[in-house]
């Protein structure tokens, strides 16, 4: 069942278009990575889903309702980002009490245990926490609220690696204990890949790819072989990246475009190797002709 349906979603600001023609459908009870470059429109998209902002055009439905300023979707959605703030009168303990008062599925015990695990004293104030501690607390808050749609926008920003690894596991454990939809926007794709089921790649305000992680990874492949053989083979193909060195060429191409048997490749001295999902993202979203080396050559 789809809990999120977006069609032709667009959001224009005075000086730029954050989203245009974004269409996607997200099924319930999945952990989905929302991936994209800086300024691709990830946060705008997530803010629309949380009901914070209104799309300029197109339609968006969350739990079959328009999420904008809707109390039903608000009750079932939580958006955790680095701007989450609490009154400076409240200690962490009081914040948890408040959360318990609002969210019906609240897991107070779990929150206390997690806070104890990461060593955050209950008596401290939210504003006094360091960047990493704040992110940790926010993530705990988001996890224990157990909302049917949990949106995490860069949840691990500022956390150290050990805590990050722990919390990827915590997300997974929570997901197993209480299956729900997680949308996680992050630049640390390699780290969280293991817990993701699907990847939604946003670029330039629209969806570039939406697929299960394995399929996503297999979208692109690396071919390595003699330059002249590869040149004829890839003559009419889209090449995402190419590097020539001593008569050998390394090229990244779309796997689906390559209709050639493995044996033929081998006989031509071409090897095929897979890419990591981070690399796939990088190549898919890299602008043509943009090469940082070119600036320094």
């Amino acid at each position: 069942m789809n809990i999120i349906k977006c069609e032709e979603l667009a959001k224009n600001y005075a000086n730029h278009n954050a989203l245009h023609n974004l269409t996607c459908a997200i099924e319930s009870e999945k952990i989905i990575g929302i991936i994209g470059r800086n300024g691709a429109g990830k946060s705008t998209f997530l803010n629309i889903l949380a009901g914070y902002i209104k799309p300029t055009s197109g339609s968006c439905s969350v739990f079959n309702k328009n999420p904008f300023n809707n109390i039903f979707t608000a009750a079932n959605t939580i958006l955790i980002d680095d701007r989450l703030s609490f009154s400076d009168y409240l200690t962490l303990e009081e914040i948890l009490t408040m959360g318990a008062d609002f969210y019906p599925n609240w897991q107070g015990e779990l929150a206390y245990r997690l806070l104890d695990y990461v060593g955050l004293p209950l008596t401290s104030k939210h504003q006094q926490l360091s960047k990493g501690q704040m992110a940790t607390f926010n993530l705990i808050y988001g996890l224990v609220s157990r909302c049917a749609l949990t949106i995490l926008d860069e949840p691990m920003n500022g956390m150290d690696e050990a805590i990050r690894t722990d919390f990827y596991r915590a997300i997974l454990k929570e997901y197993i204990a209480f299956p729900r939809t997680f949308l996680i926007a992050s630049h640390h794709l390699a780290e969280m890949e293991s817990i993701l089921e699907e990847i939604l790649l946003i670029d330039d305000g629209s969806v570039l790819a939406h697929a299960p992680v394995e399929d996503f990874k297999q979208q692109l492949i690396v071919l390595n072989g003699p330059s002249d053989v590869l040149a004829t083979l890839l003559a009419d193909k889209v090449i995402y990246a190419q590097k020539d060195m001593a008569g050998m060429t390394l090229a990244v191409v779309e796997a689906s475009s390559l209709v050639i048997s493995e044996d033929l490749l081998r006989t031509n001295g071409i090897t095929k190797s897979p890419l990591t999902s981070s690399d796939v993202c990088m190549y898919l979203t890299r602008k043509k002709g943009r090469d940082i080396d070119a600036f320094f050559d």
């Binding site: 319930s28 109390i71 039903f72 079932n76 049917a148 729900r180």
Partner: peptide
């Protein structure tokens, strides 16, 4: 899927006022 939370506007307002 777990059943969705259905809180009325009145309930939310009451809770918000309380805090």
């Amino acid at each position: 899927m777990h059943s969705l939370t259905n809180l009325s506007l009145k309930t939310i307002v009451k809770k918000q006022v309380k805090w």
